[in-house]
Write a protein that binds this DNA or RNA. Sequence first.
DNA 1: TATATAAAAATGAACGTTCATTCTTTTTTT
DNA 2: AAAAAAAGAATGAACGTTCATTTTTATATA
Lengths: 194, 194
Amino acid sequence: MGKLQKSIDKRNALVKATIELVNNNGFHATPMSKIAKMAKVSPATIYLYFENKQDLVNKTYVEVKAEYTKYAFATYNETMSVEAGFKLIWNRIADFKLKECENAMFLAQCDNTPMIDEVSRQEGIKHLQPLLDLWQRGKQEGIIKPLSDYLLYAYAINPLSFLMIIQKRGVFTLDKTHLEEAYQSAWSSIKVCQ
Amino acid sequence: MGKLQKSIDKRNALVKATIELVNNNGFHATPMSKIAKMAKVSPATIYLYFENKQDLVNKTYVEVKAEYTKYAFATYNETMSVEAGFKLIWNRIADFKLKECENAMFLAQCDNTPMIDEVSRQEGIKHLQPLLDLWQRGKQEGIIKPLSDYLLYAYAINPLSFLMIIQKRGVFTLDKTHLEEAYQSAWSSIKVCQ
DNA sequence: TATATAAAAATGAACGTTCATTCTTTTTTT
DNA sequence: AAAAAAAGAATGAACGTTCATTTTTATATA
């Protein structure tokens, strides 16, 4: 195993540990010493990869957000119909939230707290452009309600975060049937009524 | 001003300071000393009203949650039609999120982090019963989709939290028009299609 | 190829600071 | 005058970060 690979592994271990500890204990109860221990690294080593704790958590956020959007749009292309495109993206996002549950939880927590710098937050938003473009097209074709992108997002995409969070708490389980129903609700909320 | 009133004022000041500081800086950057300073009280005095920091934040959460649900259902009664009842409650919740913005932000942050004890969280959920009952009735009458309460909540109510958070960030402003549109989206997502 | 040397990466212990909480004293209320 | 409430200063523990040192890796020399 080369030097470079070793470094990458260590960095990844730190990011992973950060996600896991912040998910379980919150930012306020996640000391650098614990992150180091979980990543099997000395506390001092963290500072070879990140400037400080804030930088570690910012970079973790941006990276996970990038993974999320990459996954969401991986199989989408602009030649699809608006309805098919939306369904595809919606399902990819649902997939991500189920399969990469830890990552998705981390994003949800970051999105609702002052844990992340505003700059990093902006960085994270950029990647959503394909979805906004799709909606633009949908509005032009008269298929999607002429609403602000934020309203569309709030009703179509964001509810998945809420569902994931209560699933994590064990009060609810998202199965295949639920997902189909959830998709129908999402689509109902943004499509133009026929 | 009597002793009791003075005590209540002090307690309220502490709760208010906690909300404001946690909203702006997050739990991790909200020391007891700052809370005390903002409430114009000695740090030691906090411990006359609350057991410790965790207790302070738990009790703050439960109290704000109680205010929230009280406000949401204040003008609702069970003789209303399902559609009218839902519209009323939805609008009261939207109202609360706009008028009591600080309180609503605090709840959103608490609901997405391990900041609050599980016990207090459960305590907070209890008050939603009138809404669940309304949906039950709506499902029986064939007006509301036969979905899990959590799915209904995710699409009908929770999006308001998301809208409020991005509003706070300044990227978006929820005006009267948006609210009507948002309500229509909410209702579309849960009503049975005619 | 084997060895010596320089550079880089990694470490555990230590540092200064900050924090939640408590202790002792003062102030206020009864 | 006694009791309760509040205050500020004090305390020990925990934290983020840095420092001095060791270990590992890369490079140069024979």
